[in-house]
Computed example of a mutant assay.
Amino acid sequence: MSSTDVSPRPGLLATITEHRFLALLNESENPLSRSDIAQLSGISKPAISDAARRLEDAGVIVTTGIREGRRGGVAALYGINPARGHSVSLAMDSAFVAARSVRLDGTVAFDKTEPLPQDASSDFVIAIASGLLASLEKASPTPLLAAAISVADPVDRITGEIIPMADSVFPAGHFNPVRDLNIEAAEVKIDNDVNWATLAEHRVGAMKGVGDFLYVHLGAGLGAGLFLGGNLQRGARGLAGEIGHLQVQGSEDLTRTLSRLGFGNAARAYGLDLEASRQLLSGPELSPTTREGLDHLAVAIANMVTLLNSSAVVLGGPLAGIAPLENYLSTAIPDLSLDRVDVVLGTRSPLDGASHEAHRMARAGLGF
């Protein structure tokens, strides 16, 4: 007997109906009636009515109002229940810690960023993050359904542990966020900031629907997100895309080369100095030394583009929007690449990527 000859179990049919019911509510900007959902889904009205009853009993949907019909009848309007739960996203960077809470219906309950001093210790970062999460809990007194964490360090893609590196722009982030911040949720994901930003650009940003592109983070640290064949590539352990560690001259990597050419600061053990970099790029004309640094950066990016045959390069991070830098790379990268490539400015942050994924996991845990 073929699989098409097997009738689905009633429970499976009910689950499919509920999934479609919730998906349509989630996609709609306005509340929907059972008649609306039946028409949009092509599922019978009795089946939709049964699904509405089950979902309302489970607290996943609520009645938000009524609609009066032309003949005097009224129809109940449904929406996702924001009180059913929320998701949490946390982004930790060498310059800040940010936290966001999103209710199940997609509305934002909490969104705040706290700056970090340059000499912040791990204990200090943990204290700031814990304080933000405590404030978030007060603003979101509903069940925590899912959490996503972004850190400015590589993350082991199998174990989820942060990979400590001697040359790191965020050594204060070398701790276990889930354990040390007491994050308890049914679903928790942790990844590095560049990967989260890459996913955000693909899902809701400049690269929505694009299957192959390279995301380049330009900040205190340099990193790249490799989006190939419709998927983010993390490598064997999670270190794929560490463009800042590419060798440029002898044993000197790209980050140290740029630091030596004025983009760094002696006070910083490793990484670029954002203020020093902005000053180099703010003059009426770029100096020969600054151009040399940008040439090294453009060559590294173009080599990755040629290797991966990316259709586009997305520039992100705190330095990406500086006009002289953007203009220089937008010209140099295509000229150095083997195939045609577009260079665009990113519109999304690592917190956006983590927030989107946390909300997706929260919905998926409830069947939509």
Score class of each variant (00 low, 15 high):
residue 307 L to W: 01
residue 74 V to M: 09
residue 149 I to N: 07
residue 191 D to G: 03
residue 147 A to Q: 09
residue 209 G to Y: 05
residue 56 E to Q: 15
residue 300 A to V: 09
residue 275 E to C: 03
residue 56 E to V: 12
residue 284 P to D: 09
residue 192 N to V: 06
residue 325 L to F: 11
residue 244 G to T: 13
residue 269 A to R: 13
residue 225 G to I: 09
residue 342 D to M: 04
residue 158 I to V: 15
residue 240 A to R: 05
residue 334 P to C: 05
residue 21 F to R: 02
residue 67 R to A: 13
residue 144 L to Y: 03
residue 179 R to Q: 11
residue 12 L to S: 10
residue 199 L to D: 00
residue 272 L to C: 08
residue 142 T to W: 15
residue 199 L to A: 03
residue 276 A to C: 08
residue 286 L to I: 10
residue 259 S to T: 14
residue 355 S to R: 02
residue 62 V to W: 03
residue 255 T to M: 12
residue 97 V to K: 09
residue 141 P to G: 13
residue 293 G to E: 01
residue 59 G to L: 11
residue 247 Q to N: 09
residue 80 I to T: 01
residue 240 A to H: 00
residue 309 N to V: 08
residue 36 D to W: 10
residue 228 L to A: 11
residue 54 R to V: 15
residue 326 E to G: 04
residue 316 G to P: 05
residue 138 K to L: 15
residue 357 E to W: 08
residue 179 R to H: 09
residue 349 S to W: 02
residue 293 G to I: 06
residue 98 A to R: 14
residue 83 A to Q: 12
residue 67 R to F: 05
residue 184 E to F: 09
residue 157 R to L: 13
residue 216 V to G: 00
residue 349 S to N: 10
residue 131 G to V: 15
residue 64 T to F: 02
residue 296 H to W: 06
residue 181 L to M: 05
residue 258 L to K: 04
residue 360 R to N: 05
residue 118 Q to W: 14
residue 319 L to I: 11
residue 20 R to C: 08
residue 32 L to V: 13
residue 119 D to S: 14
residue 254 L to K: 03
residue 186 A to N: 08
residue 354 A to L: 06
residue 222 L to P: 08
residue 159 T to D: 07
residue 30 N to D: 14
residue 91 A to Q: 12
residue 80 I to H: 02
residue 54 R to T: 15
residue 229 G to K: 07
residue 33 S to M: 11
residue 12 L to P: 02
residue 23 A to Q: 14
residue 281 L to D: 01
residue 322 I to K: 00
residue 22 L to I: 03
residue 59 G to T: 12
residue 316 G to H: 05
residue 77 L to W: 06
residue 110 F to L: 12
residue 108 V to H: 04
residue 229 G to V: 10
residue 121 S to L: 13
residue 226 L to A: 02
residue 10 P to F: 05
residue 38 A to N: 07
residue 193 D to K: 07
residue 217 H to C: 01
residue 6 V to Q: 07
residue 38 A to L: 12
residue 242 E to F: 11
residue 182 N to T: 08
residue 313 V to I: 08
residue 131 G to L: 13
residue 364 A to S: 12
residue 38 A to K: 07
residue 179 R to T: 13
residue 105 D to K: 07
residue 58 A to G: 13
residue 269 A to G: 00
residue 62 V to L: 14
residue 237 R to C: 06
residue 283 G to I: 03
residue 333 I to G: 01
residue 271 G to R: 04
residue 51 A to D: 10
residue 138 K to A: 15
residue 158 I to K: 10
residue 311 S to L: 01
residue 330 S to W: 04
residue 60 V to K: 07
residue 85 G to F: 01
residue 108 V to L: 08
residue 255 T to K: 05
residue 180 D to F: 05
residue 73 G to W: 04
residue 180 D to E: 14
residue 230 G to R: 03
residue 265 N to G: 14
residue 6 V to A: 06
residue 331 T to E: 11
residue 33 S to P: 11
residue 204 V to C: 03
residue 227 F to E: 01
residue 149 I to Q: 09
residue 273 D to G: 12
residue 210 V to H: 01
residue 11 G to H: 06
residue 214 L to M: 04
residue 94 S to G: 08
residue 317 G to E: 04
residue 52 A to Q: 12
residue 303 N to G: 01
residue 223 G to F: 03
residue 185 A to G: 02
residue 252 E to R: 14
residue 146 A to I: 10
residue 322 I to C: 05
residue 281 L to Y: 05
residue 85 G to V: 08
residue 19 H to M: 13
residue 149 I to Y: 08
residue 116 L to I: 15
residue 333 I to F: 04
